[in-house]
């Protein structure tokens, strides 16, 4: 599948933003209003900037961005529409919480707004994952782990971001470092399991089924329908990076999980180095998510490519 660059940037940026909102919301829910508003306000605003940048960039790959507002209408059937509705709805508790943080005196409703913020962020991330996971035409995406991986990676980058903001304001929370480490480990475990599963997945459909002629076997393309690649081949047959999947997976594991974990350990053991270690962990994890998202597209095979002679199924399952 062709990776839409704007969608990769969108899911990386807004993923981190929603992750940040999730941990900020949970902290507010559990600890109540913070003594110092500045770190929480910064986290809330930065999350909003990331989410908004992501949502804006997601419209760049549209043929008609000026019509994007129409995408809020079909939430009954479409996960993409649900994502849009959830994303916009999540701005409401974020805005309310912003007021609660900023206005003097203890306004009521902080807990409720925080809970709504966490739920909104989780639902939006879930919808993003389901856009891919609901497509039966792409076996690598049509997988139960896909939406949870989207949530786990958002939670991991969001926790790193919140820890970095805290350190920048001179406050440290060992629990947050632990939370970030746990989210990274959970993400690594899920991603590793996902790769193992798709590698051995048998081909769900064959060219024989795609052609459908009863009793036909040994089908192979003789003449192509067109001399140059068309939209279907460029979009569904895109494979740049697939040959290097092994190397890119190792890069993902290193950048997204290993390096940030090492940095977290350093930050926990040598607090003086936190201000260097945590931003580095964040940058590394961000780059790791970008590689992971590219691979998520490049390794995905589309059923329609059967007609062009491609085979489905995992790398190890395809081998005779």
């Amino acid at each position: 599948m062709h990776p839409a660059y704007s969608v990769i940037f969108f899911t990386t940026a807004s993923g981190a933003g929603y992750g940040l909102w999730i941990w900020l919301g949970l902290r507010t829910l559990l600890d109540g209003l913070p003594d110092r508003a500045a770190p929480s306000v910064t986290a809330l605003v930065l999350g909003g900037v990331l989410v908004t940048l992501g949502l804006l960039s997601s419209t760049f790959h549209l043929g008609h961005p000026e019509r994007a507002w129409r995408a809020f209408s079909q939430w009954r059937s479409s996960w993409l529409s649900r994502e849009g509705v959830a994303a916009v709805a999540t701005y409401l508790p974020a805005g309310a919480l912003f007021l609660v943080f900023l206005l003097p005196g203890s306004l009521p409703g902080a807990g409720l707004f925080a809970a709504l913020l966490v739920s909104g962020a989780l639902v939006t991330l879930w919808c993003t994952g389901m856009i891919y996971a609901s497509l039966r035409t792409v076996p690598e995406w049509n997988h139960g782990l896909v939406p949870t991986i989207y949530i786990a990676l958002a939670a991991a980058t969001g926790a790193l971001l919140l820890a970095t903001i805290d350190v920048a304001f001179g406050q440290r929370s060992e629990i947050l470092l632990l939370v970030a480490a746990a989210a990274l480990l959970a993400g690594a475990l899920m991603k590793w399991t996902y790769w193992q599963r798709i590698d051995v997945a048998p081909a769900p459909y064959t060219l024989e089924q795609a052609i459908g002629i009863p009793g036909a076997s040994g089908i192979r393309p003789l003449d192509p329908p067109h001399t140059q690649p068309n939209f279907v081949m460029r979009e569904m047959g895109y494979a740049v990076g697939r040959r290097h999947a092994g190397r890119l997976r190792r890069w993902t594991m290193a950048l997204l999980f290993a390096l940030p974990l090492v940095a977290l350990v350093i930050a926990a053991l040598v607090p003086v180095l936190s201000l260097i270690a945590l931003p580095l962990a964040l940058l590394s994890a961000g780059a790791g998510v970008l590689v992971e998202r590219w691979l998520f597209f490049a390794e995905a095979r589309h059923v329609s490519m059967l007609y062009y002679g491609a085979a489905l199924g995992g790398r190890e399952a395809a081998a005779p």
Partner: peptide
């Protein structure tokens, strides 16, 4: 007149 060109429908079609 209302298609936004997100291409998701083409992803959902197994027949290309």
């Amino acid at each position: 007149d209302t298609c936004i060109g997100c291409k998701l429908c083409s992803w959902a079609c197994p027949y290309g």
